[in-house]
Structure formats: C-alpha cells, structure tokens
Design a binder for these strands. Structure first.
Lengths: 211, 211
DNA sequence: CACTGTGAATTGGTTCACAGCC
DNA sequence: GGCTGTGAACCAATTCACAGTG
C-alpha cells in the first residue's frame, strides 16, 4: 500500500487489467494470479503486482486475486462505476461514426451533446441528438455537467474549441484532430491519431529493425 | 550520432516532429530551433536535440535546424517517402469510415484491399474496392505486397485474423479491436481504443489527481 | 508449496550543463 | 551570443528476489 502519486503508465495499464479481468469473469474464473494476468496482457507478473500495490493489497498470498473483487476495485479506482456525460464536437464522417458507436454507452460514456460549427448542420439531428452550434458550448456544457469531450474536427479549429470546452468545465479531451493541444494543468488529453500510429510503425518496416 | 537501437518512445516522438516541421514549413520558416520545436510540442529542447542525435547531427550550432532538410531526414527515417499499400479488415461502421477517410491516402497509406467475413458483404463494393472474404487474405496480401493492415472487426475475431495477416506477410497492425493481440517478434501493433483512452482519464476526474 | 507484496538492484529515459561551433 | 550535440547526473520505471502468508 503505497499512497504516492501514481504514474500515468500505471493508470493506463489499469485499464488493460480491467478488460483482462472481465474476460476472466466471462470465462467463469474465480481466482486469477498475477502470472496469468500477465500472460493475457504480455506484461510481467511482477509489474502487475507492483502496479496493484499502488492502490492496496488486493490479493491473497499463496492464492492469487479474486476476480470479482479485484474487478470491483479496479472499476472504482478508474471511476467506471458511474455514467459520464460526454460532449462530441464535429459531426463529419468521423463524428457521426463515433456517435453511432455503441461501445461508449456500453461502458458508461453517454454522448449527451453534439456540436458543430457548420450552420447547415446546426439544428439537424443525428443519433437522436440535435446538433448545436459550437458557440453554445459555454452554455450547454456546464448546464449538463459535462467534463469529458470528444474532438472530431479539423485541425485548425481544434485548439480554439478545446479552449472553450475547458473554459466550460471539461477536464478530459479525446482528441482525434492531429494537433498538439495546449491545455492548462489539470486537463487531460489523449491523442487518437491513426496516421501517427502508422507512421511510427513504418520506421521499423523500412529496415531500422535492429533484430 | 549514436547508432544504438533507438527506443520506441523516440520513434513515436519523431512522428510529432514531422508534423511540427510541416507546420513550420507552411508558415514559411526556414530555420527552427530545438527551443521553438519544443514549445510547439510541449517537450523540452534538450529532449528534441537528444532524440535527433540518435540519427545524426542535423543542426548547425548557433543557428538551429534547417526546416526543409530536417523534414526530409525525418521523412526518410520514418519511411514516409514511399507509398504503403494497406489492407483493411472489417467493414462495419468503423471500417467504412476509415475507408472513406482521406488522410491515409494523403500521407501515402493507400488502402488497396478490403476484407470481411460476412458473406453478405463479400463481393459488394465500398469506396471503390471490392470486398473480399477473409479467407483470401493468404492469397491477396502477399500478391499485393501488403505489409500493413488495419483491423476494424469484432474482438473475438481479431486474434485469428491477425494471425493470418502475419502469416501472409503483414508486419504492422493498427488494431481498433479492444483486444491484446499476440504477435511474434518483429511484428508491430498499435492499439487504437477510444474507450481505453477515456477510461484512463476518468481516473483523474474521480478525485485521484494529486495536485 | 504457491502466490502476493515490496525493498533493493537494475535498466531505461530525461534533463542538466557545458564544450564547441557559427 | 545563440544554439547544437553529448557525456554526466538525475529521475522514473521495470525487474529481481525473497520474506511473509494462506
């Protein structure tokens, strides 16, 4: 039990543990060892034990971890036991695909407000939501208690919109625009950029692999 | 000039430098300092200099880096000076959105083959491509010299398809399925999972922030 | 005896600080 | 004087190894 501030890598891995544990649960496992969890995720057993020890001693020596209770703990730690209202900004191809993606709602992320800057889109409806003008962010976001937003808009608009979202109370941004957003302390950004991901792999394909 | 094997973090950052340099170019900058580049990307100047020094000395002391030539170098290092044929597997909502996303082609990633397991989809066409059955992967992928694939399919199918892709010569996988793929040495995977990204931010929203 | 939890050891990555050059 | 390139110093993360427990 170590109550120091937890490194972000650990938090990210925790989400992986969450999925692995659910898969254990589906398979009807009652107990899981750090060993097995590690094999499922390509991570060492020691890593998993150390990661979990940041939050407390959830296991039993000689036995392992109870799947059910560890899952509960992980959910609680990650804040997954509540519903999160989410704003979506940008309703192009990508935005619409995201709006129709069922996975968000299944995991408790409910898109409750949609914004776009294009006057032709404003007022129309998509996925059961009326599309609002970007300008209404400052009004709607605090009113709905939204603290998470998804950005699916052109790169040149992203910074500006991010700022108005943050001003309106958003603290977590899932950014699909290929831009490095400048955000104040205490605001979190995760970059979702398929091109960057591809481009960081071609490096290895082009003969740089050392092995 | 350090010819040790380059850490993956450095490669990932290199893609960021690539975008920053292009933005410099668009703004007409001829010269850029590690300082300025760092400010654009929220990275320290020393980090940038060290990263670049893995690949060679591209700068001039007292001056900085020539935008044009550094960009050239970065493109060459990352393997971005060629076209990459790409396979797309899975043509649900997400797969179709990816197929219509122009960004891939603009950056030299050309989706040249589309696969799906659903017999109702096989034979139909989407985005100018005929959809083939998954079973044809072993035939088509090597024939077209494909080494990169995008997985946009249900989690339970992902591992199996990944294996047939790897067998067919694919070495880089952009995986949208929420599964940890098991791949042999020398195969690269980048996970694109919006839920994981959201879930690793709620941790901080739920009161764990130390600051 | 199998497995966790954790200090200690190690490895890896980042930042410092300065010599060298323009 | 301004800026790069890089060893050295520092800090962070991972792995080791083992004492402790069911």
């Amino acid at each position: 039990m170590n109550q120091r501030t937890v490194p972000d890598v650990v938090v990210r891995r925790l989400t992986q543990y969450y999925y692995a544990l659910r898969s254990c649960q589906e398979r009807g496992l009652e107990i899981v060892s750090s060993q097995l969890l590690g094999e499922m995720l390509n991570v060492t057993a020691a890593q998993i034990r150390k990661d979990l020890s940041f939050f407390g001693g959830f296991g039993k020596q000689g036995i392992g971890y109870n799947v059910e209770t560890l899952l509960e703990h992980v959910q609680r730690i990650l804040g997954l036991k509540q519903e999160w209202p989410v704003a979506l900004v940008g309703l192009g191809n990508l935005g619409r695909a995201l709006l129709h993606y069922q996975g968000f709602a299944q995991e408790g992320f409910k898109i409750v407000a949609a914004f776009d800057a294009d006057p032709r889109k404003v007022g129309t409806s998509a996925g059961g939501l009326t599309i609002h003008d970007d300008k209404e962010i400052s009004q709607t976001v605090p009113a709905m208690g939204i603290r998470i937003a998804i950005l699916a808009l052109p790169p040149d608009k992203a910074q500006e919109v991010a700022e108005s979202l943050v001003k309106a109370g958003v603290r977590a941004l899932l950014n699909y625009a290929p831009v490095t957003l400048k955000v104040p302390e205490g605001v979190w950004v995760r970059q979702m950029d398929p091109l960057v991901a591809l481009q960081s792999m071609t490096y290895y394909l082009v003969g740089n692999e050392a092995l």
